[in-house]
């Protein structure tokens, strides 16, 4: 026979018993006996067949996860402690208005497609300049200003503010701006195939972000952050 200590908020499910004597020679057998004696307790410890993610079981001073998990053997007189993992905190103060990003992407896609259809490198050059200027000085980001001062006040696009880091999005735009700049240089150098191929690459990545919500530039940013690249200090907000 072993003993399982019951945390105070779970005692309503054990007839107010603070500890329960259980049979079984393993942790899983002991828990099965506990559940058999007090079936109402089960959903507070288990999510289906698995222990809830915040539930830790200690045999003496050791977390059973570092022993043999639920197969850990228990002996006569052992005591199992049920200890929760707790975390939390204030909401992140780092905010990004996704609507501003999406309007920006929509402008980039539309104007670059127009540049391709009209076969005018100058329009692509204009887009590259807006993207690079907006990266260097976010307040001068033309398409985002159109959102901020026209589309949002008019109620055409509603803001959608979420907890996120602005830096990866800025990096993504800067990267796109550099690629479009290269494309324009290739077009001016008489390389229309490669020039327009790079334009389409940026259109494709912006569309991936606009329609599917995957920011390839942000992905690269966080990979660089993970590798400790200087300047890439932000971690994904969990």
């Amino acid at each position: 026979m072993a003993t399982i200590r019951i945390p105070a908020p779970l005692r309503p499910y054990t007839n107010n018993q603070s500890s329960v004597t259980v049979s079984g020679d393993s942790v899983s057998a002991a828990l099965a006996d506990l559940n058999r004696q007090y079936p109402d307790l089960q959903p507070h410890l288990f999510d289906g067949e698995k222990l809830r993610s915040f539930v830790n079981l200690y045999l003496d001073k050791q977390d059973i996860a570092q022993l043999q998990g639920l197969n850990t053997p228990i002996a006569e007189g052992d005591t199992l402690l049920i200890i929760p993992s707790i975390a939390g905190g204030a909401p992140s103060k780092r905010k990004v208005d996704q609507s501003a990003l999406k309007v920006n992407q929509a402008f980039i896609i539309t104007l670059l497609l127009l540049a391709f259809v009209l076969d005018t490198a100058w329009l692509a050059a204009f887009v590259a300049a807006v993207m690079l200027l907006g990266t260097a000085v976010p307040a001068l980001s033309l398409f985002k200003r159109i959102y901020q001062h026209l589309l949002k006040p008019a109620g055409v696009v509603k803001p959608h503010v979420i907890s996120d880091n602005p830096e990866p999005h800025r990096f993504a735009q800067g990267f796109g701006g550099v690629v479009v700049t290269l494309a324009v240089l290739l077009l001016w150098a008489g390389q229309p195939f490669w020039g327009w191929a790079l334009v389409w690459l940026v259109v494709g990545l912006a569309a991936l972000n606009l329609f599917l919500g995957f920011c390839a530039g942000c992905f690269v940013y966080y990979q660089l952050s993970r590798l400790g690249a200087p300047g890439f200090t932000r971690k994904p907000i969990r």
């Binding site: 945390p7 105070a8 908020p9 779970l10 915040f54 707790i86 939390g88 905190g89 204030a90 909401p91």
Partner: peptide, 27 residues
């Protein structure tokens, strides 16, 4: 143990989505 206390530096004392995501048992 009857509860958990924590501080919110420069932020209102309102339970957040993060607190909810990592909460344990009612009570």
């Amino acid at each position: 143990v009857v509860g958990i206390f924590h501080s919110h530096p420069d932020h209102p004392p309102v339970a957040s989505a993060r607190d909810l995501a990592w909460a344990s048992w009612p009570g």
